[in-house]
Design a protein around this nucleic acid. Structure first.
Lengths: 169, 169
DNA sequence: GATTTTCCATACTCTGGCGTATGGATATTT
DNA sequence: AAATATCCATACGCCAGAGTATGGAAAATC
């Protein structure tokens, strides 16, 4: 798991240098760069799917589940940083299906919560897409360093505003 | 203006090939690749700033201004596609300042509109960041081809929901 | 009409990452 | 102990894009 400063950075030679080994060694473990990326993506996706279930699946009340979704953006930096890096590489053939599945999975969770809150299926899907867009947009602003510092008061205030605006009381 | 399929695609040799010229010719017009990118970015930013003023500056009612902002995402594909490509390259040293300025400029406009609608300065800024995040997130989903087709009914429905949720009546 | 400037092509070097060939060392098996 | 399997390094070839050197043709200048 080393895709925390870009996806392209997961190159063979730089990686080998950083790990103190050489290419010759690397190509004994992996067939090629593609295989490395594939495995890294798969591991991350599995971790993320598990995370989604354990973190949000356990919360009974749908409203608390949604609130928890927003608050979790401030925690588990690593996962979100990886995801952010993947989003920046949304043109890469290997990451597209991963991004698709992860986004779809998360949005389904969110839409389900809104349905439990009494939204119709259509409105719930719209609201879920809206909520997820807010998340994606926040990641983008974070990449540009224009988002409030996580674990700062400004971030808390912003999250409160988001919840207040998007999650019905 | 040819950065519509990635920023990295603005390379010297592919570009030259596509234009039917050669590198030798290119390097007479530009000092290097950096100069080309710089000029392209500058031209686009100026165009975008002008666009912001002419399109939204003319609308008197703040609510209509906000609604127009959302609806415009469906139009002027080119500008938004360029911006989307730039967002995907938010780690590039040259595009960072451009992205910063453009986002800041747009969010100021949005925040001003909310202030006119009676929001306090703080709430207006939060809501502007929220609105802008929705826009950024939509661009991301579009890159992943998970956003509704522009100029489709699904898109219209979604935009209606967004306006209804984020712009007070 | 000769000369300089403008614009572009050919041909080269250089760099960095991908992938392969091959051999050496340690550990495991027989 | 000999043979085989495992893990890693050195050294190579290949490719694509960046940038440079040089020259040639057309057009503007003198």
């Amino acid at each position: 798991m080393i895709a925390e400063q870009g996806v392209a950075s997961l190159a063979v030679e730089p990686l080998a240098r950083r790990m103190g080994i050489t290419k010759g060694s690397f190509y004994w473990h992996f067939a090629n760069r593609e295989a490395l990326l594939e495995q890294a993506l798969q591991r991350w996706e599995e971790h993320d799917a598990r995370n989604l279930n354990t973190a949000l699946g356990a919360i009974a009340k749908p409203r608390d589940r949604l609130i928890s979704f927003f608050r979790r953006v401030g925690q588990e930096r690593l996962t979100h940083d990886v995801y952010s890096a993947l989003c920046a590489a949304a043109d890469h053939a290997q990451v597209i299906p991963v991004l698709d599945r992860v986004a779809e999975r998360r949005m389904r969770h969110i839409a389900a919560a809104f349905e439990e809150l009494g939204f119709t299926t259509g409105r719930a899907r719209h609201r879920a897409q809206l909520v997820y867009s807010v998340y994606l947009g926040f990641l983008q602003l974070q990449r540009q360093k224009q988002a409030p510092e996580l674990s700062s008061n400004a971030f808390e205030d912003y999250v409160d505003h988001v919840i207040e605006t998007l999650v019905p009381a």
